[in-house]
Simulated assay, not measured.
Amino acid sequence: MKVFNNIYLIGMMGSGKSSISKLLSHEINFKVREMDEMIEEKFGKTINDIFNEFGESEFRIVESLVLNSLNQEKMCIISTGGGVILENDFNKIKKSNAVIYLKYSPKYLFLNLNKSISNRPLLDEENLLNKINDLYKKRNLLYKRASNIVIDCDGKNLEDIKIEILNIITVQK
Score class of each variant (00 low, 15 high):
M1T: 06
M1N: 11
K2F: 06
N5R: 14
N5K: 15
I7V: 12
L9F: 07
L9R: 11
L9V: 02
G11D: 05
G11I: 09
M12T: 02
M13Y: 04
S15C: 14
G16T: 08
G16M: 10
S21T: 03
K22W: 03
L24T: 07
S25H: 07
S25Y: 04
E27H: 08
I28Q: 07
I28S: 10
N29S: 14
N29L: 13
N29A: 12
R33C: 15
R33S: 14
D36Q: 07
D36L: 01
D36T: 12
M38L: 13
E40W: 05
K42S: 03
I47D: 13
N48P: 00
N48M: 09
N48S: 09
G55M: 10
E58K: 12
F59W: 10
F59K: 03
R60D: 01
I61R: 14
V62C: 08
V62P: 05
V62T: 15
E63Q: 01
S64L: 07
L67Y: 03
L67C: 03
Q72T: 02
Q72K: 09
K74F: 02
C76E: 09
L86S: 08
L86K: 01
L86R: 01
E87D: 14
N88R: 01
N88D: 02
N88C: 07
N91D: 09
K92E: 11
K94M: 07
K94L: 05
K95L: 03
K95A: 04
K95S: 03
S96F: 03
S96G: 00
S96L: 06
I100K: 02
Y101G: 05
Y101A: 01
Y101F: 14
Y104C: 02
Y104K: 09
S105C: 04
K107P: 00
L111P: 00
L111D: 02
N112D: 00
N112R: 14
N112F: 01
L113Q: 02
N114G: 00
S116Y: 04
N119H: 15
R120S: 06
R120Q: 12
L122M: 10
L123K: 00
L123E: 13
D124K: 09
E125F: 00
N127C: 04
L129K: 12
N130G: 08
N130P: 01
D134R: 07
L135M: 13
K137Y: 11
K138T: 10
N140K: 14
L141S: 15
K144V: 04
R145P: 00
V150T: 15
V150W: 03
C153M: 06
C153W: 03
D154C: 10
K156Y: 02
L158N: 07
D160F: 08
D160L: 11
I161L: 05
I163L: 15
E164P: 05
I165Q: 04
N167S: 05
I169L: 07
I169K: 06
T170A: 09
V171A: 04
